[in-house]
Nucleic acid binder design. Structure first.
Lengths: 209, 209
DNA sequence: TAGATTGTTAATCGATTAACAATC
DNA sequence: TAGATTGTTAATCGATTAACAATC
């Protein structure tokens, strides 16, 4: 039976999806839980447990059909139309992430970018307009974006977060070092803390872990 | 007594370090484990357990001295001179990460960047030269960088990884979707899988989690 | 001394792994 | 049927939380 997936399980789904994509590209038709486990660096048990949170995608005695399994995971990860998305902070990082959103992923449609710097307003970023922060309320009222990518410094993030939440944004891809999750527990935040990531690497490199 | 830290503990260190930095900036002198727990969204028990992996940083009955505690964590995360670092792939993302390395973090000193595109060679990225990929072996032989930031696509990453490891690179900050960890278990890799992160957000947003 | 809060040991909880019956 | 491999239940392991003695 299906037990609803825990966070560790959910976090592994994209990786399965990715690996299965590679296999499909290589023309591999069928895979067993133990083969997948080897690719993922985990155990066959875990692979089967993970999939069985969502339903039986395999055939006993046979294994999993690569294409079918990937499609099922795709339906879980990206079940609907791409989500209308805006980006706050059209600097260096914002530029790179806009590019990433357009080229290297699915599920999100970037519709507009916002920046405080007057000289950026009117320019475009990956074919979407860069608007003034003042225009944010009007834009949201008209277009109802669902997700915001936060590419501004921590101080600015703290200010803009409440604003965006009031305007109906429910999901955040957060690159700032401000942690929403504490103050707004009902909002969905995926944090990418680059500084923390580097600090972890520093610990590992310096302590020979 | 000290038990050597598990990965979850290590991953929390940068966050403690960050929060303590904010407190220090606000002029806060002393903090208790329960106050820190509230900031971190965890329990006082965990905070004390975490610190006691490294030694007693607090005073019974009093709490922790913010400045002192932060210094101790700093010594753990960044115990030595900044690590000489190179960047592979001077595109959009590479540019943003070079900036990040220079401005927003410590522990790493970017020394050179490398790119396959001939037109980029000779330019600079955050004051460091962009060199041709051909020059990689010579550069490493002369300067012995320790860490490489991988900002190239997966296919290229797979090729360059073996090369870099042969040249003596031990640590990687990896933005490509190629997973070193499986094939080279003795190498230190900190992965930033932006695609996986977004897919997780997509799951959350679409499944109302 | 009384109150507060740590350091540390013990109990709980959840996630991973192992085992095995079901079935292709 | 025999071999393979899943789905699922049970056992293990590790991380988190609770409890409490030590001590400032």
């Amino acid at each position: 039976m299906q037990s609803k997936p825990s966070m560790p399980v959910i976090k592994r789904l994209p990786r399965y999806y990715r690996d299965l994509g590679e296999m499909e590209a290589e023309g591999i038709v069928k895979v067993s839980s133990s083969e997948l486990a080897r690719m993922m660096g985990t155990t066959a048990s875990q692979v089967r447990q993970d999939f069985n949170c969502f339903g039986g995608f395999g055939q006993q005695g046979i294994g999993y059909n690569v294409k079918l399994l990937r499609e099922e995971l795709g339906k879980l990860l990206f079940p609907r139309e791409p989500v209308p998305t805006i980006l706050i902070g059209a600097g260096n990082l914002g530029h790179a992430m806009a590019n990433f959103l357009r080229k290297d992923t699915q599920g999100f449609a970037l519709r507009a970018a916002f920046d405080v710097k007057p000289e950026m307003v009117g320019l475009t970023l990956c074919d979407v307009p860069i608007l003034a922060m003042d225009a944010l309320a009007d834009y949201c009222a008209e277009h109802h974006p669902k997700v915001a990518v936060i590419c501004v410094p921590r101080e600015a993030a703290q200010q803009v977060a409440q604003h965006l939440i009031d305007l109906g944004i429910r999901g955040f891809w957060n690159f700032s070092h401000y942690d929403f999750s504490i103050e707004y527990p009902d909002v969905l935040v995926e944090n990418v803390h680059l500084g923390d990531s580097l600090a972890t690497l520093s610990y590992a490199v310096n302590n020979d872990l």
